[in-house]
Simulated assay, not measured.
Amino acid sequence: MRVHKGYKFRIYPNKEQEILISKTIGCSRFVFNHFLAQWNDVYKETGKGLTYHSCSAKLTQLKKELFWLKEVDSIAIQSSLKSLADSYSRFFKKQNKVPRFKSKKHKVQSYTTKHTNGNIAIVGNRIKLPKLGLVRFAKSRDVQGRIFNATIRRNPSGNYFVSILAEVEVQPLEKTESSIGIDLGITDFAILSDGRKFDNHNFTSNMEMKLKREQRKLSRRALHAKKNGMNLLDGKNYQKQKIKVARLHERLMNQREDFLHKLSTEIIKNHDIICIEDLSIKGMLRNHKLAKSISDVSWSAFVTKLEYKAKWYGKTIVKISRWFPSSQVCSGCGHQDGKKSLEIRDWTCPVCHEHHDRDVNASKNILVEGLRTLALT
């Protein structure tokens, strides 16, 4: 099975390359905003937008007028225009909201360039990128398959990354003849129907005090700069502290991503059928008492990883209804005795007298319901 797979590496550009990356990001943003303004004007007048081909022709003329657009990767600018056209196409299909102008203050600063005539390649411990030439990078693994494009990104921490999209051949994993039910929680991140529990590492709360302290410093330095009539972009102390806070957030993100990838891969490797609840994460986030904890555990990201890895490796994901009372029913005899509040973490069935851990019992019920649902399809 051929799939699209991303490879992300940290890159270490020199000063000249950093300047060129900044210029390319700026030019890509300028082209996007320039044609978005024209697109909006035409849409207001006619109710229809422009087309990619008409904008592409205008871009050629724009390059003649603005010579600095020729300094950067032309494919990156063209990709920015293509991204705008795709955004408007999805808007007309009611798949997303109307495209918005890009800001240089946004935390995501990136551009995408396509692979043509070997302009993107791995050469030893360096990566070849259009206009940038050879750039040092942390080669953690080999890039396999046919390369489609590369996205160069500058994080708020000041670190640079490249994400390479390639088409690779993925072989299904061997069948294990095993099925598992998963109950997602907050205290324990995942509780499996075989009794195993995976701890929620509380990445944010573990670093919460340090984050608060560094964010207070950032606020004080912002106030100090404003009192002195200084632009925050010119405040050196403010910018240093801003990078420090951004690096803490980046570390949290990396820790969480590493945990989710390792756990999802382990489950996919060891089980053929994975049964989970179809949770409404957006609805649960409206609960202000639990919103912070739910955001920290990243259930949605975990389920997404399970789904695409299952598709790659020939495994099956079964989602059961969110209204199924998995924690209320006895997994031994099926008896349901009223509604148990969240404070009750273990209980004994009055019919079969089996003692249950609330979460393990829920995961067992999720497995049974998932297999039943699968049998009906």
Score class of each variant (00 low, 15 high):
181 G>D: 06
159 N>H: 14
130 P>Y: 02
231 N>A: 11
188 D>N: 11
225 A>Y: 06
184 L>F: 14
201 H>L: 15
141 R>P: 05
240 K>R: 14
155 N>V: 07
176 T>L: 04
229 G>D: 02
198 F>W: 08
143 V>T: 07
174 E>M: 06
189 F>V: 00
198 F>R: 05
237 N>F: 02
158 G>R: 01
187 T>V: 06
177 E>Q: 10
185 G>D: 10
219 S>P: 03
189 F>R: 01
224 H>K: 09
184 L>N: 10
170 V>N: 04
171 Q>C: 06
174 E>D: 05
201 H>P: 15
195 G>M: 11
240 K>F: 09
131 K>C: 03
137 F>Q: 00
234 D>P: 01
156 P>H: 05
152 I>P: 05
170 V>T: 00
217 K>S: 11
148 F>K: 09
143 V>I: 15
158 G>E: 00
164 I>H: 03
144 Q>C: 09
130 P>T: 09
175 K>P: 09
197 K>Q: 01
172 P>Q: 00
219 S>Q: 14
173 L>F: 15
234 D>G: 00
129 L>C: 05
183 D>S: 12
134 L>V: 06
181 G>V: 06
241 Q>H: 01
194 D>P: 04
174 E>F: 00
224 H>G: 12
221 R>C: 12
148 F>L: 09
152 I>S: 04
153 R>K: 15
147 I>V: 15
137 F>G: 02
239 Q>L: 14
196 R>F: 12
208 E>S: 13
177 E>A: 08
244 K>H: 08
155 N>Q: 01
190 A>L: 08
244 K>L: 10
217 K>V: 11
149 N>S: 15
232 L>F: 10
166 A>R: 05
167 E>Q: 12
168 V>L: 10
225 A>L: 03
222 A>E: 15
205 S>L: 11
136 R>E: 04
173 L>M: 00
195 G>S: 12
142 D>M: 08
221 R>V: 12
149 N>I: 06
243 I>C: 08
227 K>Y: 08
227 K>C: 13
167 E>H: 07
163 S>F: 10
207 M>P: 03
241 Q>I: 01
150 A>E: 06
189 F>D: 00
